[in-house]
Structure formats: structure tokens, C-alpha cells
Write a protein that binds this DNA or RNA. Structure first.
Length: 278
DNA sequence: CTAGGTGCCTGATTGC
DNA sequence: TGCAATCAGGCACCTA
């Protein structure tokens, strides 16, 4: 088994974005190269290039696990890192390697580069954001995402909590790590059915999701091992030091010392405390 | 709506 | 030692 590769979830994408924005905002694209053309999800390289080159980056933000660059033309450049994607900004003269799949040349000579060992990361260029982002659920950290809205959404669902939290149509941005951590904080079993939660449990889960994500953003994300997520500058995040259950199979629960269990839910490794989470 | 399966990928690990 | 099978994971897409 891989030693816990951790992939970018909301806090990691936010951290990367916050680092890239001051480097890229206001710049213009002058060239595009793709050594792995399938990474360009919305069309062939020549058309993608023709539509991108000359465009200025007027805005950068995050939606779920997607990066979004608004362009002067009105198009948007979207990037999803999937499992192993990494972004960096380097001088154009910097050597690249077989894992460097897409290079966006900027007007000051630097390049935004997408590296991805597993080649699952994707880049989109669209006029209508909804083509790519339209299916996403609410942003869990947005002010507009209220307890009332969460209650309305979750009370209509019958699935298992773990699967629901991973479903980007339900909420945008949670992945395997923060789903498990939020369920631990809320003291809820990952196999609980959403429609069995009490009012109190719904509120606890809502607060736990927001607290875990906000804390992970403040800690610049989670870095587990060498192959894991890294900030564009190469530094690790800090939230791995605050994980309670994720990756801790057979270690004692920090609250009750019962051994953490690992089960598979919907095909995903899931860590929880069998005593604290009911 | 929910659940399960497949394919996309490759490095690390396990099995023989 | 060496090679093949297995696994991890996010997500789109398909079938019950």
C-alpha cells in the first residue's frame, strides 16, 4: 500500500491559490505547451493555445477543489489537481521532467507548470463556468453557507455520512482526510445514515466541518510523507500534526484510547474511533 | 436517490 | 532476485 499519499482537498487548494495569486494575477499568457495533451480536457492543444495566448489573468479564486483564473476574454481557465497534481511557477529556463505535463508561459518569462505523476489532473478552458463547476454543492466555508441550509440539504439524504461528505454535489471541497476528521470531531459514525441525525447532531456536524476546514486552511494544509501535497514553494503544510484519526489505524483514540479502526466505505479507506463515533 | 462497478494512471508494496 | 498482481484515490460515467 502507498504510504498515505494525500491529495489536495479544499485547504490544500486554498493554500496553493493564496501562494500563486500574487505571482500570477495581472500577468498574461504568451505560450502554452503540453507534453501530455490529454491533460487539456476541453479540446486539442492548438485550439486551447489559440484561445489562451494573449489573455490576461484578471481574477483568481477557488471553487471546491478547482482553481479558477478568469481571463480578459471572459473565458475561465480551470485546473483540478486530482490525486497527485502539483503547480509551480518557475523561470521559463528551468528544466522540466517527464512529469511536467503542461507549461503556461507568462509575459515576464516565467511559467506556471502542472506536474502530475499519475496524469489524472485536468485543465479546462471554458466560457461558461457551469460547464465544469455547475454540479458542485455549496462552499462549506462561505458565509452564505448557513446551518439552516446544511440542515435542509442533509435532511433530504439517506446515504452514509462518509459517502455524503465525499460527494462534491452535496458539499464542495471535502476529501478523504477532512471527511474522516470532521466525522470524528462530530462524534458521528461514518456509516450513519444522514436522515437519522438529530437536530443536535446536524448542528455538531456543520460546526465540525467548518472548524476542521478552517483550521486546516490556517495550517496551510496536510502533508503526509514525501510524495504528498506540497505548496508551490515546496514547503509542507502543518495540519498532519493535528489529525485525530486519519491514517492512524490501530493507534489509540486521542479521546478514549480505544484503537482507531480502518474500514472501507464506498471504496474509500475510512478511519474512525468505534467508541467515540456513534 | 443510493450503491456498486469500471476506467483513468503509476509508484510502492505484496505475493510467489 | 525478479516479475506480476494489487492497491490507493477523485471523479465521470454506467448499471441496478
Amino acid at each position: 500500500m502507498n504510504p498515505h499519499l494525500n491529495m489536495p482537498e479544499l485547504p490544500e487548494v486554498q493554500t496553493i491559490l493564496d501562494e500563486l495569486r500574487p505571482q500570477l494575477l495581472g500577468g498574461s499568457f504568451t505560450a502554452l505547451e503540453a507534453d501530455w495533451p490529454p491533460a487539456l480536457a476541453t479540446g486539442p492543444l492548438p485550439e486551447f493555445r489559440a484561445r489562451l495566448v494573449g489573455q490576461r489573468i484578471s481574477e483568481m479564486r477557488r471553487r471546491g477543489k478547482y482553481f479558477l483564473c478568469a481571463l480578459g476574454s471572459g473565458d475561465a481557465l480551470l485546473i483540478h489537481l486530482m490525486m497527485t497534481g502539483r503547480l509551480s511557477v518557475v523561470p521559463g529556463s528551468e528544466p522540466y521532467n517527464r512529469h511536467t505535463h503542461v507549461r503556461f508561459r507568462l509575459d515576464d518569462g516565467r511559467e506556471l507548470r502542472l506536474h502530475d505523476v499519475r496524469k489524472l489532473g485536468r485543465v479546462y478552458l471554458v466560457a461558461d463556468l457551469d460547464e465544469v463547476l455547475g454540479h458542485l454543492g455549496p462552499e462549506p466555508l462561505a458565509e452564505e453557507f448557513t446551518l439552516e441550509q446544511f440542515r435542509n440539504l442533509i435532511s433530504q439524504r439517506r446515504g452514509r455520512l462518509k459517502s455524503l461528505l465525499l460527494n462534491q454535489r452535496f458539499l464542495a471541497g471535502l476529501g478523504n482526510i477532512y471527511s474522516d476528521e470532521a466525522l470524528f470531531e462530530a462524534a458521528l459514525h461514518p456509516l450513519r445514515r444522514a436522515n437519522t441525525l438529530t437536530e443536535e447532531e446536524i448542528e455538531h456536524l456543520y460546526q465540525s466541518i467548518r472548524r476542521v476546514l478552517a483550521s486546516a486552511v490556517a495550517e496551510l494544509g496536510t502533508t503526509l510523507g514525501d510524495a504528498a501535497y506540497r505548496r508551490p514553494n515546496g514547503q509542507a503544510g502543518n495540519y498532519q500534526n493535528l489529525l485525530h484519526v486519519y491514517g492512524r489505524e490501530a493507534e489509540p483514540c486521542p479521546l478514549c484510547r480505544t484503537l482507531i479502526q480502518r474500514i472501507v466505505v464506498g471504496g474509500r479507506g475510512t478511519y474512525f474511533c468505534p467508541r467515540c463515533q456513534t
